[in-house]
């Protein structure tokens, strides 16, 4: 452990990252470029999130890492171990106990509180990327609020599928200004971005971008007046383990005969509910 500087990165790099984070917080939804460092994991495994987490960590922090809502998946376990080793900080699986939560593809079901930091791993930070391939042009479009194009994509969806078919990475407008990609969280989680008491940071390692939602920021999902946004999930299903009706569910194939079950994607939320039920029964 003593072979590494606290939280792996050197202090100069962390200062550079913190500057980028402060700028991102000052301009909600704006993508701030930063100079990424080589991390001991491949791109696509959360290098952006890891660098942002490293820049935010202090020795008193308690870290939680989730991947698709689960605490026990490869990505989550390896990043949690990484920081336990290079920063010597406490780790937890309980959302309420964590001060920093690094996440991939989910926002925890347990409402976040003031003082917590949620760090998202972002693969493609540019919401206009697949509509306009030129980076110079997308930056100009952001600068000039030239956002007709992204609405065209919603139009195309509606024309083809009868609804806005985008189920994840659903674009949002921040404080009525920047259009932002909330990272590939399910659109079920989009309402949680709005007016959240926690600080939300987004790190894209491969693309070298950091952006942020300060606490209590207005975040609106894009839609049409006659086709309003809906935070959908598996219809009519409840969690097979804890019976939750309000949480986002994963569909799990359980045999070769078409058997399937729906379970909470947030493992901590599910376990907490099960423990409470066991206590009530006892």
């Amino acid at each position: 452990m003593s072979d590494y500087n606290f939280a792996y990165l050197d202090e100069a790099t962390k200062r550079m990252l913190r500057r980028a984070i402060l700028k991102a917080v000052a301009i909600p939804g704006y993508q701030v470029p930063f100079s990424r460092r080589e991390m001991p994991m491949p791109y696509g495994w959360g290098t952006g999130g890891v660098q942002v987490t490293a820049a935010c960590l202090v020795p008193e922090d308690t870290l939680k890492v989730i991947d698709q809502g689960a605490d026990d998946t490869t990505n989550a376990v390896s990043i949690r171990k990484f920081f336990a080793r290079v920063a010597g900080i406490a780790t937890t699986e309980a959302t309420a106990e964590a001060t920093i939560i690094q996440t991939r593809h989910r926002i925890p079901e347990t409402p976040l509180t003031e003082g917590q930091i949620l760090v998202f791993q972002v693969p493609i930070p540019e919401p206009l990327r697949f509509l306009e391939p030129r980076e110079t042009e997308t930056r100009t479009m952001h600068a000039l609020e030239d956002y007709g194009l992204i609405q065209v994509r919603l139009y195309e969806d509606t024309a083809r599928h009868g609804e806005i078919a985008r189920a994840y990475a659903y674009p949002v407008r921040v404080e009525g200004r920047y259009i932002m990609d909330p990272s590939p969280i399910p659109k079920f989680d989009n309402p949680k971005l709005h007016n959240a008491p926690a600080l939300q940071l987004f790190g894209a390692g491969r693309e070298c971008r950091i952006y942020a939602l300060p606490p209590f920021t207005r975040v609106e999902s894009l839609d049409f007046e006659d086709y309003p946004f809906t935070a959908s999930k598996a219809a009519g299903q409840t969690c097979a383990i804890c019976g939750a009706e309000d949480s986002y569910l994963d569909e799990v194939i359980i045999d070769d005969a078409g058997g399937r079950m729906f379970v909470c994607s947030d493992t901590d939320y599910c376990a907490t509910r099960c423990a409470a039920q066991a206590e009530d029964a006892a």
Binding site: Y147, L149, Q151, V152, Y155, E156, D223, D226, Y227
Partner: peptide, 27 residues
């Protein structure tokens, strides 16, 4: 034109760029 976008989307783009947000009216 945007060759990958339907004719309706092509015509509607300008409307949406100036603030139209009602799908039925755009169409």
């Amino acid at each position: 034109l945007r060759m990958g976008v339907s004719a309706g989307g092509n015509v509607g783009e300008r409307l949406m760029a100036v603030g139209a947000r009602h799908y039925g009216e755009i169409r």
